[in-house]
Amino acid sequence: MTSISHRAGTRKRSAAAVAIPILMWGYAAIVLAPLLLVVLNSFRTTREIFADPIGLPTSLSFESYTTAWNEASFSQYFVNSLTITVASVVLATGTAVFAAYALGRYKFRGSTLLSIFFLSGLLLPFRLAIMPLFLLLENLGLIDSRIGLILVYAATGVPFSVFILSAYFRQLPSELTEAARIDGAGEFKIFGRVMLPLVRPALATVAVFQFVPLWNDFFFPLVLLRSTDKWTLPVGMTRFFGEFQADWSTLFAGILITLLPLVILFLVATKQIIAGLTAGIGKM
C-alpha cells in the first residue's frame, strides 16, 4: 500500500517537473514574442511585413531607422525626452535628498505632519490637478515650455524620493556624524561630507526608478506642450502613428527607438528598479 502511494507521488512529482518549466518558459515566450516581433520587423520592409507578418529579415536594412529618426522627427523627440527626464530626475532627487535628511535624522515640531504631507503624494491621483496646473503654468508663462513640464515632473517625483531617502537616512549610524560634530562641522558640512556619500546607493535607486515613469508619461506633455519641436517620444508617437500608418517598417523602428533606452536601463539597473518596485510593500 505504502509503496503504491509512494510511486503515485513520484509520478505526480515528475509530471510537475515537466509541466512547470513548460508553463514558465511558455509564459516567457508570450512576453518576449511581441518584443521580438518589433525588433525583427523593424529590419524588414513594409512589403515583406504585409506579405508575411512573422518572418526573419532577409537583409539587414536600417532604412526604417533613418526614416523614423529624420523624417518622423524621432531625433528631436528623443533629445526632448532625454533632457526633460534627466532634468526632472535631478531636480526631484536633488531637492528631496535635503528634505529627507531633515526628516530622517531629526524629530522636530511638525516633522511627523511633514512626513505625512510628503508621503500622501504616493497615493494622490495627480493628473486630476491638470486644469489648475494648466492655469498656474499659463500665468507663469510656462505653457508649451519644457521648463514647465520639468517642474511638474520633479514635483511628482518628490514624494517617492523623500520616502525612500528618509528611510535610508534613518538607518544610518550616528557615530560618524557625532565625530564630525565634535570636530566642529556645521549641519551642511555633516550632510555633504558625511551623510551624502553614505546614501549614494539609495540615490541611485531613486534616480533610476523615477526615470521610467517620466520617460513613459504621455498625459502631461499632451496637455502642457503644443509645439511639435518640444514634444517628447510618447506624444510624438501619436502623430507618428497617424502619419506613418501604412509604413509598418518605420512604425516598428520608431517603437524600438522609444523603448530601447528603458530596456537597456532595466537590464543594467535591474537591482535598483526591482528595489524601487518592491519598496512600497508593507508600508502602504
Binding site: 536633488g94 531637492t95 526628516l103 524629530k107 522636530f108 511633514l114 510628503f118 514635483a155 550616528s174
Partner: peptide, 27 residues
C-alpha cells in the same frame, strides 16, 4: 541618530524648503 536635538529651525527650513515648495506649488 534619530531623535537628537534638531538644528535651529532656520537650518531645518533650508533643508526642507526646496522639496516642500516644489511639491506644494506644482502638485
Amino acid at each position: 541618530g534619530v531623535g537628537r536635538t534638531a538644528p535651529p529651525w532656520k537650518t531645518l527650513a533650508l533643508f526642507l524648503a526646496p522639496a516642500f515648495l516644489l511639491y506644494a506649488i506644482f502638485m
